[in-house]
Simulated assay, not measured.
Amino acid sequence: MKTVVVTGYKPMEIGIFKANDHKIEFVKETIRKRLLAYMEEGLEWVIHSGQMGVELWTAEVVLDLKEEGYNIRLGILPPFENQQERWPEDLQQVYEEVTMLADFFRPLYQKGYDGPYQFRARDQFLVEHSDGCLVLYDEDTKGSPDYFLKTAEKYKETKDYQILYITPLDLEETVEERRMSDPDYWNQ
């Protein structure tokens, strides 16, 4: 895979309501581990639409990796201009920062929100311009990733396309690894 779409839930869909929630670090660490593994296999680009939640956290992870000297690029392709204008102010600031630092940024429609067709077009565009996707998803918790996954699954019917997941079990594994790496854990 040279290009992967990373997407998943919005913060409120997974019970995250504050920017400093410690659960975000576990999500980001899990994404980081996956991206590093894919980079060893030739990953060059991470793309997404810049949605709040998994996508913005992924952008932060990719920018951190770039700062550490890894050769990875970030592309952000929102469905329309100013998608962040109704978001909480702290998320708007994160969005502005990551879009300025991204290697590529361009809204698919050069206008504001006009209808749901823009989201469908976004999903189709991202799938057609990637080799696969990594989706933070729990089959028991329906939410915004469902729409993207339907597009990806339909595309996979006729094309070679990888659909990869980060599951709640993967997140629990990251939490457990972090706990076990804490020296105090072993002194109890």
Rank of each mutant, 00 (worst) to 15 (best):
T58D: 10
T58K: 04
E60T: 10
K66F: 10
E67Y: 06
G69W: 05
G69P: 14
Y70A: 05
N71A: 11
I72W: 05
G75K: 03
G75S: 09
I76A: 07
L77R: 11
F80Q: 10
E81A: 13
N82W: 08
E85P: 00
E85G: 03
R86A: 07
R86G: 10
W87E: 15
P88G: 06
D90P: 02
L91S: 11
Q92G: 12
Q93I: 14
Q93T: 12
E96A: 14
T99I: 11
L101D: 12
L101Y: 11
A102F: 03
A102V: 08
F104R: 09
R106C: 06
P107W: 00
P107N: 12
P107C: 07
P107R: 13
L108H: 06
Y109S: 05
Y109C: 03
Q110Y: 09
Q110C: 06
K111R: 14
G112Q: 13
Y117T: 06
F119D: 01
F119C: 01
F119P: 00
R120G: 04
R120L: 10
Q124R: 14
F125N: 02
V127F: 00
S130V: 01
D131W: 01
G132F: 01
Y137A: 08
E139W: 06
E139S: 15
D140S: 14
K142P: 09
G143S: 08
P145E: 05
P145T: 08
F148R: 00
L149E: 07
A152L: 00
A152P: 02
E153G: 04
K154P: 00
K156F: 07
T158C: 05
K159E: 13
Q162N: 11
Q162K: 13
L164M: 15
I166Y: 15
L169H: 08
L169I: 15
L169C: 07
L169R: 07
D170M: 08
